[in-house]
Design a protein around this nucleic acid. Structure first.
Length: 840
DNA sequence: AATGTTAGAGTTTTT
DNA sequence: CTCTAACATT
């Protein structure tokens, strides 16, 4: 029995499958230390500090480097985060730097949190003045502090990817841009790409007419964002970079301030981020602080979004790096797993060169399994999984099933579901991306910034209040004519449409006044009810979940205020070189004075001169935009983890299954055309392998349902690139039936090659080679006139059960077989339609 | 304005 | 196959 997507989703909702529901949202980050400024213990300089115990020589060398530029090549599982945190702690403890002089930047909020958590656990330090966060978070903080210089409104809003796309769509409509020639998605990609390369419209080279037009649209988009007081993710970076570049005073201030700049996952930085680093630190000739870049070129898997491994070489050259340390001791995996990873990645030419080693034993061999179908592959995974849990005592949450693309999860989910194995799927909608949450946030954003047309359009008629497409068009024309926001253009619309629009605007304006001085919680609750959102969803019979999520939004806001403060991302804290705040300010309005103060950001003025602070609401909206919401919060359930290989980066598990190791899938067909693409896919495989601590399982299927068609796949070249000695090839159990699959659950077994084409492919090797294949096996596509069905053999049909083939006639799509089913009699079946599996 | 129909597309993902 | 978005219909 297969479950439809909807059924799966429904099942998850009902909690049959744990995880993946709204529960996964929370703010677990620990409180910032609120202790006084005790960062400076008595300066110590000897190396027998407790901090350094347990570090291996390379790690210790990295931690105790002098204040000079350095590159740490940190292999998977080599204690990278430990080095980063210990380095910071060591610098602080030995009095070489004050918290205000530290800048540590990561890519994800999760990594930033982890850094902070582990750091505060190490040292009773005051987080005051430390800049630890994501690139975007820090840029936001910076722009909030210098919004005037950056030419932004004080309460500028951040567009996420969805918002950006709808802004572009709106723009295209307004300027009658042919969306066939210029699909909004493509424009979005173009604009984001330009910004990642640090290019404004005027910087982009118009190679051809099409590009020229795109540049024009890019410019229009920029104008629109500026007019509306919003910035997209790329803009946060780019504008920060430009301000540093163009304003000598600001640049010098930060260069003097940050004595130590630490960069995590350096191989994932894009051009602009690297340029930003150069700007905020300064090259050696410009006497800035010391940069400690930590990265692993072998784990660079984000080229598709602008990551540029070349930054590592550029860094070494431009910063005249004299310290390069390789962390090659792996503390995670047994050597069979590690050897596999090393052997695989050695096939890449473009490498800085690194070889992981471990003092652990060989461990179990890496198991490789070939199955006939994706379905059978999933069955095998579930079976092995049971063995791991029941037989070998593995904890389910310590087992991961990885795949190259998310679509692959479905088959596996179905099997897990049928077997009653709790599982949890990573990826998918994040909390702040849900439609109802975005609606609520749009109202809130309008309170902050009535010029935000994207938000205006999102909720002007949601819940429906009789404002149709025509009225909106009229309004957009009026706004364009007047050069004003939609909000302000409403007064120029007359008639019924005008009255409705005026009603909406009045509602927003009233809400704004009404909630002035309220706490964040009160504001949100008022907005949720006055806007009609709650009523709307209450009327909807399927709105219960949405209401729940809206309630969760209130909770999120509450915990934002009380637990996280207004977040380190909210505002910048102007400080002097020693990290001492330049201004003290009263707690901002609407806050419980007894609430723990966790981060200065939240009491700090964003404007050092006027002492103005960011409102709690503005801070929360920023938080919502920069942190899409953990959908990965620990459910506490003992559930198997399902995720894409990309999503697994940075995680580790006792046992890992890597599925779908097939040419075209992994490596993905879209990456196979060029060499660079294949190398990145190989790095991806490397990442996948190195996730495993004790057990590693690799599998591939001969046929797979993809886009509704059965596709035939040769096994992945990556399998041929593993060291034979570390592997154990498992002979597939043929076609399922009675072949000793545990509890003998025979239901819906091995539907075989479903859909069109042949049934069981005939090229299935019985024992896939013990020897390494120098060249990949002959692709089966053409070589299979044999559907494998001939007179005399036994076949299995999903409806009719097992039967004996009596005759076969016709070729290709016309092929038919006469089958005698004991229970249903003799049938003629079209092989292109019937679901037949060969039974041995 | 709500609901049904059809065409088209379909890696990887964070901010 | 399965999801989405745009279009058409009531």
């Amino acid at each position: 029995m297969e479950l439809s997507r909807n059924e799966l989703i429904q099942a998850r909702r009902l909690g049959v499958i744990r995880g993946a529901s709204a529960e996964g949202f929370g703010h677990a980050s620990p409180a910032f230390s609120t202790m006084g400024a005790m960062y400076l213990e008595s300066p110590v300089s000897d190396h027998s500090l407790p901090l350094l115990t347990g570090l291996n020589p390379e790690q210790e060398a990295a931690v105790t480097l002098p204040a000079e530029h350095a590159l740490i090549l940190a292999g998977a599982g080599s204690g990278k985060t430990r080095v980063l945190t210990t380095r910071i702690a060591w610098l602080l403890q030995t009095g070489q730097v004050s918290p205000g002089g530290v800048l540590a930047v990561t890519f994800t909020n999760k990594a930033a949190k982890e850094l902070l958590t582990r750091l505060t656990a190490m040292l009773p330090l005051n987080a005051r003045g430390m800049w630890i966060g994501t690139f975007h978070g820090l840029c936001n903080r910076f722009l909030r502090a210098h919004y005037k210089l950056a030419n932004l409104p004080q309460s500028f809003q951040i567009l996420d990817t969805q918002d950006q796309l709808s802004a572009i769509k709106r723009l295209c409509k307004q300027f009658n841009i042919d969306d066939e020639r210029f699909p909004p998605k493509q424009l979005q990609w173009f604009i984001a790409g330009c910004k990642e390369d640090g290019e404004r419209p005027s910087d982009v080279v118009a190679r051809d007419e099409e590009t020229r037009k795109k540049i024009e649209i890019y410019q229009l988009y920029e104008d629109q964002c500026q007019r509306e007081g919003v910035v997209d993710f790329g803009e946060l970076m780019l504008r920060s970079y430009e301000l540093l570049r163009d304003n000598d005073a600001v640049r010098e201030h930060y260069r003097r301030r940050f004595r130590h700049v630490l960069i995590d996952e350096f191989q994932d930085t894009n051009r602009l981020q690297y340029a930003w680093i150069k700007m905020i630190v300064g090259l050696p000739s410009e006497s800035g602080g010391a940069v400690l870049a930590v990265g692993d070129d072998d784990q660079s898997i984000y080229a598709f979004r602008g990551a540029r491994v070349g930054n590592m070489e550029d860094f070494v050259r431009e910063f005249e790096v004299r310290h390069q340390i390789k962390l090659e001791e792996n503390y995670r995996s047994y050597s069979n797993i590690l050897d596999s990873a090393n052997h695989l990645i050695s096939h890449n030419k473009k490498r800085l060169g690194k070889n992981l080693r471990t003092s652990q034993g060989a461990g179990e061999p890496v198991r490789v399994y070939e199955s006939a179908t994706d379905f059978a592959e999933a069955e095998w995974v579930v079976e092995e999984l049971r063995q791991l849990v029941r037989g070998d005592g593995f904890s389910r949450s310590e087992i991961a099933i990885l795949y190259r693309s998310n679509a692959q999860s479905r088959v596996i989910e179905t099997q897990l579901f049928n077997a009653g194995v709790p599982y949890r799927v990573y990826g998918g909608l994040r909390f702040f991306e849900r439609a109802e949450i975005k609606h609520a946030l749009a109202y809130l954003r309008l309170l902050e910034n009535s010029r935000d047309d994207t938000s205006f359009l999102r909720v002007v008629n949601f819940p429906p209040r009789g404002i149709g497409a025509r009225s909106i068009e009229q309004l957009q024309d009026a706004a364009r004519a007047a050069g004003s926001s939609l909000h302000d253009a409403v007064t120029s619309i007359s008639g019924k449409a005008g009255a409705n629009l005026a009603g909406f605007v009045a509602q927003i304006d009233v809400l704004r006044e009404q909630t002035a001085g309220s706490t964040l919680r009160e504001i949100i609750e008022t907005v949720l009810h006055s806007s009609g959102l709650v009523d709307h969803y209450r009327a909807d019979k399927e709105g219960a979940d949405r209401i729940e999520n809206l309630e969760e939004l209130v909770n999120a806001a509450e915990s934002f205020v009380t637990q996280e403060g207004f977040g380190r991302d909210a505002v910048a804290l102007p400080v002097d070189e020693h990290g001492t705040p330049l201004t003290q300010s009263p707690v901002s309005q609407g806050l419980d004075p007894d609430a723990p103060v966790l981060n200065d950001a939240f009491v700090a003025p964003i404007d050092a001169e006027t002492g103005e602070t960011l409102s709690p609401l503005a801070a929360f909206l920023t938080h919502a935009a920069l942190e899409a919401g953990d959908n990965q919060a620990q459910a506490g359930q003992e559930a198997v983890q399902l995720m894409s290989v990309h999503a697994s980066k940075g995680l580790e598990f006792d046992a890992v299954f890597i599925t779908g190791l097939e040419e075209g899938l992994f490596p993905h067909e879209n990456s196979m055309s060029d060499y660079e693409g294949v190398e990145e896919e190989r790095r991806l495989m490397y990442v996948a392998i190195t996730r495993a601590r004790k057990r590693l399982y690799l599998s591939h299927a001969q046929t797979r349902m993809l886009h509704g068609k059965t596709r035939y796949h040769v096994r992945s070249r990556f399998l041929e690139e593993l060291p034979e000695g570390a592997l154990k090839w498992i002979t597939p159990k043929r076609s399922g039936f009675g072949s000793g699959f545990g509890s003998g659950s025979g239901a819906g077994f091995n539907a075989g090659a479903r859909g069109t084409g042949m049934a069981q492919p005939a090229w299935g090797r019985s024992g896939i080679g013990v020897e390494t294949f120098a060249s990949p096996p002959v692709p089966p596509q053409k070589a299979a006139p044999s559907h494998g069905i001939r007179a005399g053999i036994k076949v299995f049909h999903t409806k009719f059960g097992e039967g004996k083939v009596q005759a076969v006639e016709g070729v290709g799509d016309d092929a038919r077989a006469q089958v005698n089913f004991p229970r249903h009699g003799v049938k003629w079946l079209a092989l292109s339609v019937a679901k037949l599996t060969v039974v041995d």
